[in-house]
């Protein structure tokens, strides 16, 4: 049986947005970016996390790493609760969890050489600069497919794909167990994107990594993931094994999302043939009442406007939060 490496329970993040006024008198608006999300990531698997802009998937990834402090809820890593850990205790945990970012330009300090960038995590965790550190950095560089002569180069000398390899090397140099890939291939050209996806999969096998793969591209997520979670306006609406979720999605939003992916061949053009959802994504500052998807849902019922559906498990390993699914059991 698989064991969870990470588990989140009731994880919530509320951002206070807007100016607080001259003397903090004006009440700022609150944005529930992540709203009572509970999920687990098993050791060695890749959990895909998809959703459209503003759904909170990036925030969730950063919450799990405690790069952002949660407003409520708990995070357990490898069986122990890390929600309340202090700075120094958390530092030890950070060895085991790392992040790869989307923007290959903003993710590397332009004033540091490749060697300094990749060596930094080692130095933070007590390594001394010198031959041993250099050997580890060179080895990691080789693993991500870059030659040793890249060591004394600076980020601006590399292409987007190569920078992403450097970012991956930095994340892996401490031999962590969990990697959060936050849109790690989204900014790359498709021909380069495939290289990086393959690299991530090779490294996962080789180093026994667990991935949380956050992306908006559904076909890439399907390719790389074992299970997939779908988010909409701060809520997880469906989680299932990838084959199930792509071939038999239960939540109307998941269905609409998959139907909206452009065809892969002109013979499968979707115009006029597939279910389309109308309207725009509502603002997260003022989300709809009840089920947050009810304003765009083709199957909306009266109950959807009043009460938020809870995540239920209609089949083993397949969770969904929708009144359509809940109703038959009630």
């Amino acid at each position: 049986m698989t064991t969870p490496l990470v588990s989140a329970t009731g994880l919530t993040k509320v951002f206070e947005v807007g100016s607080s006024g001259l003397f903090g008198l004006r009440k700022p608006a609150s944005l529930r970016a992540v709203d009572e999300v509970s999920l687990t990531i098993n050791a060695g698997e890749t959990l895909g996390l998809v959703g459209e802009s503003g759904c909170g998937k990036s925030t969730l990834g950063r919450l799990l790493l405690r790069l952002i402090e949660p407003t409520a809820g708990r995070i357990a890593f490898d069986g122990s609760d890390i929600t309340g850990l202090g700075r120094s205790a958390m530092r030890a945990v950070r060895r085991s969890m790392q992040i790869v970012f989307q923007d290959p330009y903003g993710a590397l300090n332009p004033r540091m050489s490749v060697e300094d960038i990749i060596a930094e995590p080692l130095l933070i965790h007590g390594a001394k600069p010198g031959a041993e550190t250099r050997r580890k950095v060179t080895e990691m560089l080789g693993k991500v497919g870059l030659p040793a002569r890249a060591l004394d180069r600076f980020p601006h000398e590399f292409s987007g794909g190569q920078r992403q390899r450097i970012g991956i090397a930095r994340a892996l140099v401490l031999h962590p167990r969990l990697i959060v890939c936050d849109e790690a291939v989204s900014a790359l050209d498709v021909s380069v994107q495939a290289q990086i996806v393959n690299l991530l999969q090779d490294l996962q096998r080789e180093m026994g990594l667990t991935y949380l793969f956050i992306a908006h591209d559904l076909s890439v997520v399907r390719h790389i993931s074992d299970r997939v979670a779908v988010m909409y306006l701060g809520k997880v609406v469906e989680i299932a094994d990838k084959r199930t979720i792509y071939s038999a999605p239960l939540h109307p939003y998941t269905r609409a999302l998959i139907a909206a992916v452009p065809a892969q061949h002109p013979a499968q053009r979707s115009r006029g043939r597939r279910e389309r959802i109308a309207g725009d994504i509502p603002s997260a500052l003022n989300p709809p009442s009840g089920c947050r998807f009810h304003t765009r849902c083709p199957h909306v019922m009266a109950v959807c406007r009043e009460r938020a559906p809870v995540l239920t498990e209609p089949a083993p390993g397949h969770q969904v939060a929708c009144h359509l699914i809940e109703a038959p059991q009630a």
Partner: peptide, 13 residues
């Protein structure tokens, strides 16, 4: 480009 319907072990990069 990965497929939305088929499983592939590896992408052809």
């Amino acid at each position: 480009v990965p497929s939305l319907t088929e499983d592939r072990a590896r992408l052809v990069a």
